[in-house]
Design a protein around this nucleic acid. Structure first.
Length: 184
DNA sequence: AAGGTTCTCAACCGCAGACAT
DNA sequence: AATGTCTGCGGTTGAGAACCT
């Protein structure tokens, strides 16, 4: 992903993936001086990166409390519910999922959930669906990814109301069922 | 095993708003 | 009030991984 350096600031500005050394410098600098104005932080730390790039790297990857991967069924439901409420307000949604970043939620939505919505539009009537109900503004019928036999089994135990397609990597059930089983 | 295709996610870009001068 | 700088956000891109044929 190495791109042509941008020299608009007069100095060489590095772009593309962060190296371990850069990560180490950034972590060390923030540990010693805290988060401050990102542009001056980048300069003070001696990083050939923009403040914006440092901020993004820190918030999305290096922060000690950041959690990556393994979105739980509960988190997915929350994402779906909040997205139904607020739309693409990723940072707002992320505030309700401790340790998750807006970028991760946005990626998760686009790569997992949106994919199934599109499938549903293509194959209307199949098990995964999003419906408008008269009683509520929006009811989201659930799709929870199950990445392994273990999580498949866990999903069944967690949500007894779920109907899981045999041999499938996706579990599908009514959002209302899951909500009443698990959150009500 | 090899080549092609699809998926994932880190990182970039552009824009808007907040704040400082 | 005008201008500049910084931050935060949402959309997009593209490299590498994973999967498929």
């Amino acid at each position: 992903m190495e791109k042509k350096p941008c020299n608009s600031l007069g100095n060489e500005v590095r772009k593309g993936p962060w190296t371990m050394e850069e990560d180490f410098i950034l972590i060390n600098h923030i540990a010693n001086h805290g988060e401050s104005v990102w542009n001056s932080l980048a300069r003070a730390a001696g990083l050939k990166r923009t403040g914006k790039s440092c901020r993004l790297r820190w918030l999305n990857y290096l922060r000690p409390d950041v959690r990556r991967g393994n979105i739980t069924p509960e988190e997915q439901l929350l994402i779906m519910e909040l997205h139904a409420k607020w739309g693409n307000k990723w940072s707002k949604i992320a505030k309700h999922l401790p340790g998750r970043t807006d970028n991760e939620i946005k990626n998760y939505w686009r790569t997992r959930i949106q994919k199934y919505i599109k499938q549903e539009e293509t194959f209307a009537g199949q098990s995964c669906e999003i419906k408008e109900h008269a009683s509520t503004s929006l009811q989201v019928s659930g799709m929870i990814d199950t990445y392994s036999p273990q999580s498949y089994q866990e999903t069944l135990e967690t949500f007894p109301g779920a109907t899981l397609a045999p041999q499938s990597t996706q579990a599908c059930w009514s959002f209302e069922d899951v909500w009443s089983t698990h959150f009500a």
